[in-house]
């Protein structure tokens, strides 16, 4: 990993830390969750499609992972 990668990781870790420590200013009250509860806002929406996409890109590109775990397989061709 080169220096710029280290810096990027550090930057993201710091951003996450700030976000966690500042959680009193972000976030919503229980009664403000109407939009977050809609189907479009669910993080795992289209999960099966994303999993199929991930398998295609795993077979065609040199990178994989990041979003979750893969489902296995060779991906040789």
């Amino acid at each position: 990993m080169n220096r710029s990668s280290h810096l990027l990781v550090l930057g993201i870790a710091l951003a996450l830390g700030v976000m966690l420590s500042g959680c009193t200013t972000v976030g919503v009250k229980v009664w403000e969750r109407d939009i977050l509860a809609t189907p479009y806002m669910q993080p795992d929406r289209h999960s099966i499609e994303r999993e199929l996409d991930d398998h295609i890109y795993f077979s065609k590109e040199g990178s994989s992972g990041g979003r979750g775990f893969g489902g296995g397989g060779c991906g040789c061709n």
Partner: peptide, 19 residues
């Protein structure tokens, strides 16, 4: 995999993973 999901406001959701 280590992940964090954070509600930012009533209309925004943020997710970050390190794997």
């Amino acid at each position: 995999l280590l992940g964090i999901t954070q509600t930012i406001d009533r209309k925004t959701l943020f997710r970050a993973n390190y794997s």
